[in-house]
Every structure is written in C-alpha cells, then in structure tokens.
C-alpha cells in the first residue's frame, strides 16, 4: 500500500530525516513517536506530498488521503456540511450526514465552526478526513491540547471509522501511552542521531484500543528493551 524509502531530507544543509524505510499495509495502524523537532511532522509532509523536496522515494497506491492536523483547520466561512463537501470527491449526498451521525454530530450540519466546541470541531475534521474513504489516513497529533475525556472520545470515534473503512493509518505523536493504546506498530524517531525501531505492540488484527493496564505493561516492556531511545527525549 505504502512504501517509504527516504534517504535524506535537509533543511538549509541540516539533516532532518535520514535513512527511513518502512512499508504499510491497509488495515495497519502505525504510530511515529519522538520528541518535538525530530522530524515527525516533516515526515508526514513528505508522505502527503505537501513537501516534495527530498532524496528517496515514496510510493503509494492510495488515490486520496485523509489528514487530521494539530488544529481542526476548518474553514470558518463554511458550514460543517460545506467544510466536508469542499474536499469530497465521490458523489454520495447522504455520506456526509451518515458519517456525522456516526460521531453524533448530525445536528451540526448547518452550523459554522465558531459555534462548535473544540472536541466537536475535531470530530468534524475527522469526518472530513474519512469522507473520501481514503486508503491512507495521516494524523498529526490530533489529540493534542484536548482534555482527557474529549481526547478518549475522539480516539473511539477514530477507531470506529478505522474499523468501518479499513485504511492504513499513520499517527504522529509524542505520547507513548497513546501510541501503544492505539497502534499495531510503533516507529521511534530520535533527535540528532536518527534511530528507527519498528516495534510491534498490538498483534490484534483490525483496530483495537488497549486497556490502560495493558498499555502500562507494554510500555515497561518497551522501556526495558530500548532504554536509550526514550531516555530523556519524551
């Protein structure tokens, strides 16, 4: 589905990313974790072809991708319906309503973003990400700056959509617990010395969220296996 082989990505002569190879199948949830400034967001920009200035190759057979950012990034001058419709490719008039119903937001169809709470706006941006049934979903710290219950509710909605549409998902985060709870694989990106370890955390098929106790267990296990990677960086 997605094959990534980045030899190097430079910003003004400084190497941001180096030798990153991985591939991803449909129905797989991968988290990319690392401290801020390690190039996580840059990596997403390369995958989404917002930035095409790098050495290496990225191949995917996804016609469209969906993305959630650190902010909802809705257009304030469009209603919820128009915000989703503006990126929509396939003609299915009921689809917008249906996806909004799945996250309990069908009553917001004709509301403007200023009237939505933070959590609601993110859910709209979640619906927007999935409206074209993309095979690849990119998530750039979408749960950041949300309170815990809102963040958990949004994660549930995300997993619900993932189960329904079975895309490949890449989540960028600096929260190890979050990464373990949601993903099947974790890729660690370290700061200056780039180290990548692809770790399997969740061997389930499909998209499952782990219980906090399981998350703690796996976390301790990971930390004992790779103490250097996380030390002082997260």
């Amino acid at each position: 589905m997605l094959n990534i082989d980045i030899r190097s990505k430079k910003y003004s002569e400084k190497n941001i990313l180096q030798n990153i190879q991985f591939s991803l199948k449909e129905g797989t949830f991968l988290s990319i974790i690392g401290p801020s400034g390690c190039g996580k967001t840059t990596l997403l920009k390369l995958i989404s072809s917002l930035d095409i200035d790098f050495e290496g190759s990225i191949n995917m057979d996804a016609k469209s991708i969906g993305m959630m950012f650190q902010e909802p990034r809705l257009l304030p001058w469009l209603t919820v319906r128009e915000n989703i419709a503006v990126v929509k490719k396939i003609a299915a008039p009921e689809a917008i309503k249906e996806l909004l119903r799945m996250v309990g937001l069908e009553h917001t169809l004709d509301m403007y973003p200023k009237n939505l709470s933070g959590g609601m706006a993110r859910r709209v941006s979640l619906v927007r990400a999935f409206i074209n049934r993309p095979k690849l979903i990119l998530l750039d710290e979408p749960f950041v700056s949300l309170d815990k219950p809102t963040s958990l509710a949004l994660q549930n909605d995300l997993m619900l959509f993932c189960k329904s549409f079975n895309p490949a998902v890449i989540l960028v985060t600096h929260d190890l617990d979050e990464a373990i709870a949601l993903s099947q694989k974790i890729l660690f990106l370290g700061g200056e010395v780039t180290e990548e370890v692809m770790t399997h955390v969740n061997d389930h098929n499909g998209f499952e969220t782990l219980e906090p106790s399981q998350v703690q267990m796996i976390k301790e296990n990971l930390l004992s296996l790779y103490p250097n990677i996380l030390e002082g960086k997260l």
Binding site: S48, L50, S64, G66, F69, E71, R73, L75, V87
Partner: peptide
C-alpha cells in the same frame, strides 16, 4: 495552514 488542507485533499 488552510491552503495545506486544500493541497492534501487535492
């Protein structure tokens, strides 16, 4: 940032 959204959704 809003223009990036337009780019990503082509």
């Amino acid at each position: 940032k809003l223009l990036e959204v337009a780019c990503i959704y082509k």
